[in-house]
Simulated scan of single mutants.
Amino acid sequence: MHGLGELEAAVMNVLWQEHPLKVRDVLDRLETGKKLAYTTVMTVLDNLHRKGWVTRELEGKAYRYEPAFSRAEAAARTVRDVLVSSGDPEAVLMHFAQSATERESELLRRALPKKKRSSAS
């Protein structure tokens, strides 16, 4: 995901699959190919909380974490960031529209609100 480091993205992937989870639960489910320390995962979750990617609730002495928004919402935010940072959102959208599959084009047509036609037209 845009704006996330590799380990942050891996933690978010775990939370999008199952939540809420404690640090230990996230650590046990992470598949990074590396042995990670509990404190490393705790720090990553704290950073994700500070950045607004996760919410947390204290349960006993430990926090339970869950995503602040869905994977689809995160992807949409990434697209929005790309459009804003491109300097020419119209050109980016036009290139995307030209490269969209038939299925993607149909989904976009259904998602865009239909303009009300006035009887005066």
Rank of each mutant, 00 (worst) to 15 (best):
M1Y: 09
M1P: 06
M1R: 15
M1D: 03
H2Q: 09
H2G: 02
H2F: 09
G3S: 11
G3I: 04
L4G: 03
L4V: 07
G5C: 03
E8R: 12
E8W: 03
A9C: 03
A10C: 04
V11L: 04
M12W: 03
V14D: 01
L15N: 01
L15D: 07
L15W: 01
W16M: 05
W16F: 06
W16D: 15
Q17E: 15
E18V: 13
E18M: 14
E18T: 14
H19E: 14
P20D: 01
L21I: 08
K22G: 11
V23H: 04
V23Q: 10
R24W: 11
R24F: 08
D25Y: 08
D25P: 08
V26F: 11
V26G: 03
L27G: 09
L27F: 14
L27E: 12
R29H: 12
R29M: 09
R29Y: 11
L30N: 05
K34Y: 13
K34A: 11
K35A: 15
L36E: 06
A37E: 13
A37S: 11
A37L: 13
Y38I: 05
Y38G: 04
T39S: 14
T39N: 14
T39G: 00
T39M: 08
T43G: 10
V44S: 04
L45F: 01
L45T: 03
L45K: 00
D46K: 09
N47Y: 01
L48I: 01
L48W: 05
L48E: 02
H49S: 05
H49W: 12
R50Y: 13
R50L: 08
R50I: 09
K51L: 10
V54M: 07
T55H: 06
T55V: 04
R56V: 02
E57V: 14
E57A: 11
G60E: 02
A62M: 05
A62E: 12
Y63Q: 01
Y63T: 00
Y65V: 05
Y65K: 07
Y65C: 01
Y65N: 05
P67W: 06
A68K: 07
A68M: 12
S70W: 13
A72M: 13
A72V: 14
A76K: 10
R77F: 10
R77I: 07
T78S: 15
T78R: 11
T78Q: 13
T78Y: 08
V79G: 07
V79W: 15
V79Q: 11
V79M: 15
R80M: 14
L83V: 13
L83I: 14
V84T: 13
S85R: 13
G87W: 10
P89F: 10
E90W: 10
A91D: 08
L93A: 13
L93D: 06
M94D: 08
M94E: 15
F96S: 06
A97G: 05
A97R: 08
Q98V: 02
Q98G: 04
S99L: 12
S99C: 07
T101N: 05
R103A: 09
E104V: 06
L107K: 09
L107D: 04
R109K: 06
R109T: 04
R110F: 04
A111G: 11
A111K: 00
P113D: 01
K115N: 00
K115A: 10
K116S: 01
K116P: 00
K116E: 08
K116N: 02
S119L: 06
S119K: 03
A120R: 08
